[in-house]
Design a protein around this nucleic acid. Structure first.
Lengths: 222, 222
DNA sequence: ATGTGGATTCTCGTATACGAGTGTACAGAA
DNA sequence: TTCTGTACACTCGTATACGAGAATCCACAT
């Protein structure tokens, strides 16, 4: 789980972390599809570093559930079948509902405005690749006042794990407008400090996304 | 997060994993106290391997939240202050309540008997070091039928993270007998298929433990 | 034609080596 | 005596090197 207890102390950025960041984004935006083998040599050569930092990066990504590693057989972008996606969304619903419930009473006007601003950015953003990130920023802004850093860390990790599939959703225009409607509902209920209603909207939001994904059946185990 | 998606395929046991296992246990049983620096050279020499597998092991343990690593400054057993412990227990309560709720209707008699057997083992076990493990086995047995492997993985990880502190609790004789009473209540309600009551007992169980820990104030940030 | 055996190749895990950054201790000056 | 600056020692991050195991492919036999 990335960034759980690591407070605010800024650490030197190691090569391994840079590699991990690039790989994470490449996997999230789909340029590295599920199942793609990740050869240490290839990656090392492509990035211009040795295999060691690449190894570290892969281990880190494995911990995040984004790649899976088999000793002596190598690493590949984690495949997720529909049951695994269902599991992730079930966990997300659990974690995010709780975070939202705790956060709503403590949300500052600044955070709410920030979330609203992100929504406008999503509407204005033509680049499909950025919607996923903005989507995550919006959600995390609403949870940010929950007072439990560990909970936030888990939520972020699960966002990362599901990001690939959510972006498939978001690239669908119909779903995107529906998602934005739900986002605005969510923000409104938060503004009214109605935590119960907000949680209801969130549950529907996540449930709809999951249902659409499960129906499309985008990923099956080979 | 250890053992999330790694199904049942048995992988070759790498040196790094062995080192990680030994370190995890040493940290859990208290022989490596919070804050203890973990020098790669020392560990490599002690285990008789080179630094590389040790590095891998440390990264893995960092992902589990058991050690923290600062680039260029090294690794040390993660310190947890009371707020962090509170956070962990809040997350545990959330995760385990849900898992229990989902699991209770599907628990087989075999699993229930297995859990009961573990309780008797705890009573009979004179070795303090093993209570922590047995405690975890008991809890996971009750959640095992929840149908969400990812949720179980998260629960196990958080057990590991909190293990050090829970063992401090369990070494207290009074608390141990109280804990066992609650365990038996929990098992009884599960046998009656009363999920709501089981969750109530579990919440009290975890809440009591947390309160005792927070009151004792065993760990403070320096 | 198909199945089996072996050798080659590929990839990973681990060991060793080197350079850089950080902390510390000692010496010299105020 | 105390503070500061410099040099040394320590530890980590990264690179390179080597050995082992797995997968693949081709040849040969059935």
């Amino acid at each position: 789980m990335r960034g759980l207890g690591e407070g605010l102390v800024q650490k030197p950025l190691t090569v391994a972390e840079q590699v991990a960041n690039v790989l994470r984004e490449s996997i999230a935006d789909g340029s590295l599809a599920a199942g793609t083998p990740l050869r240490q040599d290839d990656l090392a050569e492509r990035f211009g570093f040795s295999r060691m930092p690449v190894r570290d990066a892969l281990r880190q990504l494995e911990a995040e559930g984004i790649v899976s590693i088999h000793p002596t057989k190598g690493a590949h972008v984690a495949r997720m079948d529909t049951t695994e996606i269902r599991e992730i969304f079930a966990v997300r619903e659990l974690l995010e509902s709780e975070a939202l419930r705790l956060s709503v009473p403590n949300l500052t006007r600044e955070k709410l405005d920030e979330a609203g601003h992100v929504l406008n950015q999503i509407d204005a953003e033509p680049n499909v690749g950025r919607w996923g990130t903005l989507n995550r920023v919006f959600h995390l802004a609403l949870y940010s006042a929950c007072g439990n850093a560990r909970l936030l860390g888990l939520i972020e990790a699960h966002h990362n794990a599901a990001d690939r599939y959510v972006r498939v959703l978001l690239s669908n225009l119909n779903y995107r407008s529906q998602s934005q409607e739900e986002h605005r509902d969510l923000l409104t209920t938060c503004r009214h400090r109605d935590a119960a209603a907000a949680v209801r909207v969130l549950r529907k939001h996540l449930g709809d996304g999951m249902a659409t994904l499960a129906q499309a059946g985008p990923a099956r185990k080979p």
